[in-house]
Each structure stands twice: as structure tokens, then as C-alpha cells.
Computed example of a mutant assay.
Amino acid sequence: MSLSPSSLLAFVLVIFSALYALRAGKPKRFGIADRIGAIAESTGLLALFTVLHFATGWAGVPVVLWVVSVVLAAGGVAGLVLRVPTLPWLHERRRLGLRIARLAISGLFCVVVFVLGAISAWG
């Protein structure tokens, strides 16, 4: 049995949702270290959901993949909500300028994705 491109993209969404849930709930080394990172990762996952919604023919994809992705993402959000009071706004790092530039570029990408998604939904 071969995977269709839509099923492959749905598996990618499940993997990224699982990584998000793992990073959101883990307070140590692999986890999200600050609120700016939490906002960036949450927005990035939302953009991935949006892009894959328009790029995937969901009719040929098993519903369980979509449900698992949503449940994992919701679990990650719940983990972040529980951790927010203990997270600093900005974690001190050596390459702060590079991090801010990457955050700005990814934020711009997310805005473009959301605008294109809104335009295609209305059109």
C-alpha cells in the first residue's frame, strides 16, 4: 500500500503536533523556554494546520490522522497554559539578535499564510 501525498502531509501534521505537545509540556532542556517561544511555536503550528488544510485533499485521508493532530495540539496548548505563569517573557540567550530576526521572519510568513487562507475562504 502506497501513501498518497495527502496522507503523507497528514502524517507530517501528526508528527509536528506531537513535537509541539512534547515541547509544550516539558519544562527542561527540550521544552519551550519562554513566552515568546511559546507564541512563536503556537502560531507556527496554526500556520501549518492552515497550509495543510489548503494543500491536502482531506477526503482521501483517514479522519483519525486529523483527530490525532488536533488532540495533540490541544494537549500542547493545555500544557503551555499550565506553564505560562512560570515562563519568563524572554529567555536569555547568546544569539538574541538572530532569534528575534527568525521570529520576525516566521511571524511575517504566518501573517501571509493567514491572509491567503482568509482570501481563499471568502473567494
Rank of each mutant, 00 (worst) to 15 (best):
P88G: 05
V67T: 14
V84I: 15
A101K: 05
G76H: 10
H91A: 11
R83W: 06
V77C: 09
E92D: 14
V71F: 04
R83T: 02
P62K: 06
V112S: 00
L90T: 13
V112T: 06
R102Q: 11
R83K: 04
C110M: 01
R99H: 10
C110L: 00
G79Q: 03
G97N: 07
R94G: 11
V67Q: 12
V68T: 14
R99D: 14
P88W: 01
R94D: 11
V64D: 10
G76I: 13
V113T: 11
R93G: 09
G60V: 11
I105N: 04
G79N: 08
V61L: 04
G107E: 07
G79W: 03
L80N: 01
C110I: 04
L72E: 05
V68L: 15
L82C: 06
V77Q: 06
V111C: 02
E92S: 12
G57D: 15
A104F: 03
V63A: 15
L72C: 07
H91W: 08
R99E: 15
G57Y: 11
G57E: 15
C110W: 00
A73M: 10
L103S: 10
C110H: 02
F109P: 00
G107M: 04
V71P: 00
L96K: 10
A104V: 15
A101V: 11
F109G: 00
R102G: 12
R95N: 15
P62Y: 05
V68A: 15
V71C: 10
L80P: 00
A74P: 01
V70W: 10
A59R: 07
T86F: 08
W66V: 13
S106W: 07
F109W: 03
T86Q: 15
G76Q: 11
F109E: 00
V70M: 08
V70E: 01
V113G: 06
C110N: 07
V63D: 14
G75P: 00
P62T: 12
G97F: 09
L90I: 14
G79L: 01
A74Y: 02
L87K: 05
P85T: 06
L90H: 09
S106K: 04
A104K: 02
A78Q: 02
V64Y: 08
V111H: 00
L103T: 14
P85W: 04
W89G: 04
V112M: 05
W89E: 05
I105K: 05
G75D: 06
L103Y: 12
R93Y: 07
L72D: 06
V68Y: 03
S69F: 05
W58P: 02
L82Y: 11
L80R: 02
E92W: 08
W66I: 08
R99M: 12
W66T: 13
G75Q: 02
L72I: 12
W89D: 09
V70C: 04
V81N: 01
V113W: 06
V70K: 00
G75F: 03
